[in-house]
Structures are given as C-alpha cells and as structure tokens.
C-alpha cells in the first residue's frame, strides 16, 4: 500500500467514525448543556458553555427511569435464564440423544424459525391476554423465553463435540444427566455465553412486543419509557438527550465487558436476528 493509499484509508475510516460517533457525541453534548446555552446557535456548539448535570437529575425526578431500568432488567433476566437453560438442554437432546421423533422435533424448531415474529404478534397478544398475563412483565418475557434459533445454535455446538468423550463416560456408567452436566455442557460454554449475550440484547432492546403487551406505566420497560420521553419533553431536547444517555449506560457496559462474545456470536452462529 502506498503512502497516499494509507492516508486515504485512515481518512475514510475517520470519516465513518465521525458519521457513527458524531450523533452520539452531539447527544452527549446536548445532555450537559445548561440554560445558558443557545441550543440553536449558529454555528452549532459541541462544547457546552454552561455545562450542567441538571438535565440528568431533571429526567430522573420527572420520569421513573430507574423503575424502567428495573423492569427491563427483570424481563432480560427471565429471557437470558430461559434461553441459556432451555436452549442448552434441548440442544443437547437434539444433538446427542437418540429417540423416536428426533427429526420431527428438530423440524418443528426449524419451522418456528421461519415465522416472522410480527406475523404472529397479534395472536401472541390474544394468547397472553387470555391467560391473564397481559400488562405483566412475565407476559413480556415468556414468548421469547426460549428461542428456536438458540436451540439450533446449541444443537450445532453439541454436535461438534467428539463422540469418544461422551462414550467413555457412558462406559464408566455415567447417566444422561451426568454426561450432560459434566462432560458436554462444559464444552459449549462459549456458545452458551453467546446465547446469553444476544438474548440479553434482544430482550433489553425489544420495543414492539412490550408496546403491545404493557399498558400500565408502572410496568413500562426502558424502551417504552424512553418512547414516552419524547412526548413529555417535546420542547426540551436536553432532557431527551439526558434520558437516552442514561438508557445507554447499561447496554454499553454489557458491550464493553462481553465484547468478544458479540463478535464471536456473529461469526460462530451465522446471522442472528
């Protein structure tokens, strides 16, 4: 690569960086602008002249953001727990146990993959409503508590364990649960983490389903609460900005801590919705 090409490369990279990070930086800047700042100054000011944290306390005072975070956390907890446990168990059975109808059951999970969630969401709502779970966090969490895609991902992971390993344990008299618990499950921890990470992000960011299921504000998850911000503070972008920054902190923390699993998930599991 010539020098000019290298320079060009980093120029384009930096340009994209500004395009992707710029909106976030502007939001951050808005969120700390005080009453003394002219929001509509020309040229626009990225550095606030009257920096303050009042917008943050303002949002927290007027909107129960922390309760939204708590609700989202509860939903995410159920979804992550359900997916890690449910998909790992089912994936093991599909990959390593032989039983009648195994092909049929695998087929059912594949069929479930082919149904776009939006196409069944009204029927899901009617179901949740008829069981009395409408407007509850459990109602939000249950339909995604075990995803068919995760089951198939875990199945693939279990299939890649060499047979000899489990066979040796079997000869030593290990029952199915022992073989699962002590031989096979430890081999697929990485994929389990991937399932956990993506279930978390999916549950934390979901908007359509909670919007349909939840009506009472005390049950609002973070995405619903944020959507309400726009109506509440329509005249003050600073407060909206502070609200979005608060909402971003948990997900960015998860991303920073588990970054490699985000990348590995896409690489190992193929494309995931």
């Amino acid at each position: 690569m010539t020098r000019a090409q290298r320079a060009g490369r980093y120029l384009v990279l930096t340009g994209f960086f500004l395009l992707l990070a710029g909106p976030l930086l502007w939001q951050l800047s808005l969120s700390v602008k005080g009453p003394g700042d002219d929001l509509y100054a020309q040229p626009p000011q990225i550095i606030p002249s009257d920096p303050t944290l009042d917008n943050y306390t303002g949002v927290l005072d007027r909107v129960p953001v922390l309760s939204y975070v708590w609700n989202s956390g509860l939903v995410a907890l159920i979804v992550v727990g359900g997916n890690v446990a449910g998909a790992t168990l089912a994936g093991y059975a599909l990959a390593r146990l032989r039983f009648r109808f195994r092909g049929l059951v695998t087929g059912l999970f594949v069929v479930a993959l082919l149904v776009p969630i939006e196409a069944i969401i009204i029927a899901q709502f009617l179901l949740v409503r008829s069981t009395g779970l409408a407007d509850t966090l459990l109602g939000v969490a249950l339909p995604t508590a075990v995803g068919a895609l995760n089951v198939l991902l875990m199945r693939n992971a279990f299939q890649s364990i060499p047979n000899e390993l489990e066979e040796a344990a079997r000869i030593d008299g290990a029952g199915v649960w022992q073989r699962f618990r002590h031989i096979c499950a430890p081999q697929v921890r990485g994929v389990m983490t991937v399932v956990a990470v993506f279930s978390f992000v999916g549950a934390w960011n979901d908007f359509l389903w909670p919007l349909i299921v939840l009506s009472g504000e005390e049950n609002y998850t973070l995405t619903l609460g944020l959507n309400r911000l726009r109506g509440t503070f329509v005249s003050d972008p600073r407060l909206i900005a502070a609200g979005t920054i608060i909402a971003l902190v948990p997900i960015l923390a998860v991303f920073a801590l588990l970054q490699r699993y985000f990348f590995r998930g896409l690489q190992a599991g193929g494309i995931k919705g």
């Binding site: 089912a90 059975a93 339909p143 699962f180």
Partner: peptide, 18 residues
C-alpha cells in the same frame, strides 16, 4: 425432559399463535 421447556415455549408461543 431435556426438550420440555424449549418445546413448550416454542409450541405455545410460536406454533400455536401461527
């Protein structure tokens, strides 16, 4: 037994609604 939780959720919340 291993399949039960996953099968239950997927059957009840995906296949039946479909």
């Amino acid at each position: 037994l291993f399949l039960a939780p996953a099968l239950l959720i997927v059957a009840v919340f995906v296949l039946f609604p479909f």
